[in-house]
Design a binder for these strands. Structure first.
Lengths: 302, 302
DNA sequence: ATGGGGACATAAACTGGATTTATGAGCAAC
DNA sequence: GTTGCTCATAAATCCAGTTTATGTCCCCAT
């Protein structure tokens, strides 16, 4: 009856290469074909799929002398695998941009929330349209972004503040909503009525440090009054703290999508305040984006 | 100037073990501590992080004689890595449930859409609350789910149809909206006004095969009239076809969330039809879920 | 100041898994 | 039947990650 107790999931999940291979098999309907596409030999592919099946304890592909098709379980596993591979592709697109290269065609500066949650996807889309565009990324706060742009060390910026830094032109690319969240066990999670703004202002909250974009918006909406229960320096730390039940927090809906759908966090309705902010693309006044920058910009606006 | 041209991302992304290690370092602030947690030695962790840094071309960790902290780039990379690891954890939770074991405490039967998009998250949440609950999963259509439940081969089911199969009690756990999507290049993507139901009914669409849950809802909403442009047997195939510009399709919003936010697909407003359906948990009439089944059920309802 | 402890780096030997090469066998179409 | 696709098997090779065994640096307490 004993199951493996080890913490690390890496030993229970096939490696990325195997998952990628499985996707190729699903798409091409052939082990050998998939092997060719990934630049390995057919026996290698065969053995990899086999050991993946052994590891998972489920048959994934039906082999026949004229091709391979997925079993029912294999189709399901492939769908789950696709999500892992997509996350890995986003990781890759982001990481690729992080090593600032001299020969980068497009230099992007972005605030943290955008760099974390949106930019990898945009970079992936850009890569599929213009595979040869080398992008470099610098992440920081609004001030940093503005500095880089004005020093001509970046071609395009993305900020999430309330105001546009001086010297920059901008366009709104999306709207972000800050929402109040708690652990499902928190008393607020069982409330029937929305929390009034006044109560939010007087309740101690788990907050990002002063000066962060999120904090600024919250303070402005409440009238400079947000009370800290704890102050933490990263969104991740705030989320972890909320999940563990320490108290309520105000976070971007971008940051908590996953947690909400998995019920690790609960959204608390609020009345009397609008916690919205714009996400903007910015560039030095007059220097309208052209070339790759324009391309990327158009990807962000649907 | 030459970049690596190879298709496979697996060679450009650190393996899951390395990403997991990075998360542990971020959490614990120490290479040795992270190593201990993952059951490897400190030199192994050190060399793994080092080779990850070499691979990505970016310093991730600031090492000091009294611990390690993430660099700015490292923090960003860690956030991206977390998403990969979370997807892998969901994969693991799903895969674990796929090998039907005799000693399973909880036997679940679910329709495809739910098994694909929602169940892994629920299983993950369940595992964090009740680590010792062994779950087995069977995916199929509504009919299959009903059969299993009635034959006492499953304890709890999830279906997405319009009606509840005979002999089963149910509760609504969520609402799913079917939406019309096209590639961004499709003429409909530039329309200002919503597409009327009549036009939708007369336009050839990319559809799932007859009998699928999605198709049933669509036919009912339009009055049995949906015109196939192509018929495909999986949601994935439909999505790929739409992305490539073949035409419009009607899909669950669960299935296209990623594609919409990355602008690979565009949502087309429609007027004159409501393409909604309920997601339901089901069980044999009278046999109200108890024990682990009740636990899982409560996770699905917020 | 001095010794202990924690944290990371380096070097060398080991180990195991994945890959390639080489071959065999089943099925279909011409 | 022969050609050409498919996948499977076997043996040799190769490489990457690991462990063991040290060394260095720094802080803190004595």
């Amino acid at each position: 009856m004993g199951e493996q107790r080890e913490g690390s999931i890496a030993h229970r999940v096939p490696d990325l290469g195997a998952l990628e291979l499985l996707l190729a098999v699903a798409r091409l309907g052939s082990l050998g074909g998939a092997a060719r596409e990934l630049g390995i030999t057919q026996p290698a592919a065969s053995s990899r799929i086999r050991s993946m099946e052994r590891q998972l304890g489920v048959a994934l592909v039906d082999r026949s002398p004229r091709g391979s098709t997925l079993t029912d379980a294999g189709a399901l596993v492939t769908d789950w695998a696709r999500r892992v591979v997509e996350a890995a592709a986003a990781f890759d697109a982001g990481a690729q941009a992080l090593r600032h290269r001299r020969d980068s065609r497009l230099r992007v500066a972005a605030s943290m929330t955008i760099a974390e949650y949106l930019l990898p996807g945009w970079l992936l889309a850009l890569r599929s349209q213009r595979p040869d565009t080398a992008v470099s990324l610098l992440a920081g706060n609004s001030t940093t972004v503005a500095e880089r742009l004005l020093a001509d060390e970046a071609d395009l910026g993305f900020v999430e503040g309330l105001s546009v830094p001086a010297g920059l032109d901008s366009t709104v690319i999306a709207h972000d909503h800050l929402i109040v969240v708690t652990a499902p066990t928190h008393p607020w999670a069982r409330r029937q009525r929305p929390v009034p703004a006044a109560e939010l202002a007087t309740t101690p909250l788990i907050l990002r440090e002063k000066g962060s974009g999120t904090r600024q918006v919250l303070d402005a909406a409440l009238g400079g009054l947000a009370r800290p229960l704890i102050e933490l320096s990263s969104t991740t730390a705030v989320k972890a703290s909320v999940v563990s039940g320490a108290g309520p927090a105000v976070l971007s809906e971008l940051a908590v999508g996953e947690e909400l759908s998995m019920r690790r966090l609960v959204r608390i309705p609020v009345e009397g305040v609008t916690l919205a902010r714009d996400l903007r693309a910015v560039w030095p006044t007059g220097h309208r984006p052209t070339g790759p920058a324009r391309e990327l910009l158009s990807l962000t606006r649907g």
